[in-house]
Design a protein around this nucleic acid. Structure first.
Lengths: 213, 213, 213, 213
DNA sequence: GATGAATGAGTTTTCATTCAT
DNA sequence: GATGAATGAAAACTCATTCAT
């Protein structure tokens, strides 16, 4: 019963509900643009309401306060990105293809969402003040999950003796994550830098082929 | 004569000067603790003054405004860390030793200055609104310099045929930087995690020995 | 149609608008009392808000800052007084009646608005730092216009040979302005002084009848 | 005894005293320049001390606070101007000469001390807040004395039947004061205006010759 | 006696949030 | 249910004044 209800809701949200969702979207979109342009503390709730073309009171009907709005914004994207990345890995069968797909999709997301990525990382590494603790925790958790999936790829490769056991699979996941993030931030700072290897294979090779003769 | 005097002054700053420096230190230390606990925008100048046990007016004698204080805090350490890391690399002769020393010292700095590191990274990745543009620029510049020194090590190793030319030296520098940073943040989040290889050799090996059989 | 509508709006501002105007009035009135009691720099925005029985934020909704409030206060009255004085002159036909009406109305305004008059003159003569430059300019301009109208009366009297050409009409306007202002300030300092001629005729006579036998 | 002592002090102030007086002069001069450039409230005690090349503490040795310094500045000049004006009147014997000399000297003072004059008038007409009450009182008193001296001239002229008794002598004094002040402020606003009668005779004539045929 | 470092009360202004219409 | 006027707590910063050296 309960189940059926839920299913029906999924399939056919009432017009009221669709309208609500559309409004919420508009507010989050406005907020994202403003936050990423000016930073959380330099955006006022009035600005967001105004950009989204709603009254301030309406904004507060949807989000109980500024922090709540911010959290909703970050979490929504965090989850979407996580799903995309995990999806990218699982899409392929071959371990090397999986890693390459991970690198490729991570890069795409990065380039397509620069402002949000900045927000995300300043949150991830940055100020862990109480207010946002919950947010940081969720971000870490999602990140951890992605690392686990990645570690699974390395482990599977090792089991099949495709990869040498030069380190714990999880450590390798951390390493690959670090390498790709470093390259992507590098690109973010200097998009035209020629030494930056844009193709996934080149990046992956750094990890796959050892340096020492 | 004049010269001698100046030199002596360098060596032995007057008591007034030493006292001033001590006070400044106290203010910066108080600010660092508060900023890293609560984030730049959630700390008031009154709090800082109060924690440093000075009157608010005295704080403003030393730093012309909040931003100025923040910049002083970050830049001072940025430069010190940079010097330490470059020094660590140049201390050794052998290329592998140089890389290992880099990892080791970077780790030491990281662990010894956790609050500042958080602040540093939230600045590096975070909101780049105008106010902090100058600061971000300096941070990027110093980081770039460190990468160049690191790239030099890879290049020298390649010239001597100790390292294979699997990637551009600068790309390798970015990769090593990314790997170490990833491991260090990992440790920062979960200091007790056993899968994290704490010793420089283990980390370096990930880069040196290729994975694929 | 459109036109009619606009006209009707002029005549009948909406209740919202009337309420707004009433509030603004209350704030300006409170500010006037405080400014003239204690001087611009010795009144805080909190005091004004409090006296007007509004929250400080509401005060800032109406005036973007303290200076803006002050300017609004002075300019509003400056224009009203100017209109009243010019009107008083033009109300009569006979030149002597015009001058007498000028003196009479100027006196009435003065006595009815003592606090504002103090404020006005301290602005007119007082510190002309940049902030208030715009304000002073407008005050001078309005004053100049009134003098020109007054000069016109003298000129017309001269053309009809009612007045002797003992001085340039504009100089006479300045003189009459100076005499009335002097008498009014005198009255302002010592309202009960018997030697001060309160009636316009007596004042005007000083100018009209030469002293020397 | 007491008297002798005072006389001796007058004639031969000790070197210490002369030095003190010189210092005080320097402080008042610096303050005058700053106050008249920027207005009382826009000048800090540090600025004054700095311009006068003394330490802030030394400034406070001479004037117990900012207000005290301001008062000393205004009063000193007020008294000097008053003495000059009364002297100018009494210098001559003939009544008309006396009035003309009054106008001439008042004009000279005005033109030579424009910044201070602005300060003086904003004080005279302006904000009568408690702080400066004492100052305003003294200014009024001195002004009143000057008016009395002027009234004396008119009275004496009337007694000799040189002047017609068209108004109370004191009222005439107020009128002449008002006329000259009006002309001088006019000159202050527009120094090059041609209609402004700069010579004392022209101004006095306005009062002496009646307008009406 | 001179100095100027230290003080902290006091000011303007902003902006998240509420709630009557 | 939407609106946006009203609120007032809180923050950065200034500057007159003091007092230990």
């Amino acid at each position: 019963m309960q189940n059926e209800y839920v299913v029906r809701r999924r399939k056919q949200p009432s017009r009221r509900e669709r309208e609500k969702a559309r409004q919420r979207r508009g507010m989050l979109d406005a907020a994202l643009i403003l936050f990423s342009e000016k930073g959380y503390h330099n955006v006022t709730m009035h600005e967001i309401a105004s950009k989204a073309e709603f009254a301030i009171g309406t904004l507060y009907k949807f989000f109980k306060n500024k922090e709540d709005l911010y959290k909703a914004l970050i979490l929504e994207k965090t989850d979407a990105f996580h799903a995309a990345i995990v999806g990218a890995i699982e899409e392929k069968d071959d371990e090397v293809d999986r890693l390459m797909n991970y690198i490729r999709v991570k890069g795409e997301i990065f380039r397509a969402h620069v402002p949000l990525i900045r927000l995300y990382f300043s949150e991830k590494y940055g100020e862990s003040f109480d207010l946002m603790a919950e947010l940081s925790a969720r971000i870490r958790q999602v990140h951890e999950e992605a690392l686990n999936v990645l570690a699974g790829v390395f482990e599977s490769g090792m089991r099949k003796n495709r990869f040498r056991r030069i380190a714990h699979p999880h450590a390798l996941a951390v390493a690959l994550d670090g390498i790709t993030t470093a390259f992507l931030f590098r690109w973010l700072d200097e998009p035209e830098d020629q030494t930056f290897p844009e193709d996934p294979e080149a990046i992956l090779n750094i990890l796959l082929k050892g340096l020492v003769e």
